[in-house]
Simulated scan of single mutants.
Amino acid sequence: MAWEFTDDRGVTVRSEHRPQRVAAYLRAGAGLADLGVVPVAVFGSGHDGDRPDPAKWGPDAPASVPYLGAAGALDEERLLSERPDLIVDVTYDGKHAYAVDDGAAERAHLPVVALSVAGEVPQARLLERFAELAVALGGRAEEGADRLAAAEERLRSAVLRAPGVRVLALSPAGEERVHLARPLAWPELRRLVDLGVRLTDPGEEGGVNWRTTGWGKAVGLTPDLVLSDARGNAEQPAALAHLPAWRTLTAEAPVLPWNPELPCSRRAVAAFLERLAGALEGLARPA
């Protein structure tokens, strides 16, 4: 039976048989694994190193899946040795796959499916598309749906019990700089806004997804809760403990790990919403 799937670039991949061996970008592969499609190999992006980033691969990802390296340093010989028949990636611009090099895919004669994780894509649509791909690859679609619905309801309730709490999402870039996230540039953050979370916008200056600035700007926004980038390419709280601005920022604001590249599955999103709801519940005013 013929198999085909049209990705979010408008590219249709066709095969005589359903692909059985998928190589995937870490984030995409973690989402597929949650939906019953375990990749035969995974690879990173240009931000990654020689080991898989735990934030992208997820704490429950199968340890036996080999990591082929990051974009630009992808071990093409190893890729071929795993005998994949499909590569799954993400796209931010709707035109190009993000992590896999076009040349590497062409040299390996492997088709690429890329699903959009751009900021304007509603999170529900993002998750739906990965579920559609998982089903097309023989996986399951509804894994985590009930848990996600319950997590969203819990978060709505937590917001109502902690009115006015200001939440700032950021990615530490060292002692001098910090990237402040634009809430509407990330599907996950946009969904938090939809659920009532008061996310702080860092202002118009800077790039599309982030405003890169000094720590003084972050301190001046006086958040009540900080979402700090948990990925390996960001500075982590333990490395910032000596920084006066970080100590001031977090003196009264709890810090919650935030992954801008969550595994693309309902279960992963639900787990994050549960943690955020718990943090807001801790900030709730006494009844």
Rank of each mutant, 00 (worst) to 15 (best):
A270D: 08
V255F: 00
G94S: 13
R211W: 06
R266C: 03
A218S: 05
W57C: 07
V112K: 03
R107L: 11
D101E: 15
L221P: 04
P223G: 07
Q236A: 15
L262C: 10
A97F: 08
W215Y: 01
A118N: 02
K217S: 03
L170G: 03
V255K: 01
R147S: 10
A239R: 15
G164C: 08
A134E: 13
V226P: 02
G144P: 12
M1H: 08
A99V: 12
L195S: 06
E153I: 03
L127C: 04
A284L: 12
P172L: 06
E252Q: 14
R267L: 14
A287E: 15
A271L: 06
R161Q: 13
E16D: 15
G103L: 14
P19A: 05
P66T: 05
A73R: 15
A185H: 02
D34C: 10
V22N: 04
L168Y: 04
G164S: 09
L160W: 04
L26V: 05
E252W: 09
W258D: 03
P254E: 04
S15M: 14
P122R: 08
D89V: 12
T12M: 07
V88R: 00
G29S: 03
A149W: 00
E106N: 01
T91Q: 11
P62L: 03
G203R: 13
F272W: 05
A23N: 04
G164L: 15
L148T: 08
P122V: 11
E176H: 12
A136W: 12
S81H: 09
A218W: 11
W186R: 10
G203S: 07
G31T: 13
E252P: 00
L80M: 08
W210N: 13
A277W: 06
R83C: 13
V135H: 03
E274I: 09
R267E: 14
L155S: 13
A63C: 06
D48E: 14
F5Q: 11
W3R: 08
T248A: 12
E281Q: 15
L249K: 00
A145D: 15
A134D: 05
P223S: 09
R275V: 06
A245G: 07
R247P: 04
V135M: 01
V113F: 02
L240E: 05
E235T: 01
L184I: 01
G69V: 15
V13I: 14
D224Y: 05
A271G: 01
D146Q: 14
L127W: 00
P19Q: 02
L168P: 01
V40A: 01
V159Y: 04
V40T: 04
A55N: 04
A245E: 15
E106L: 11
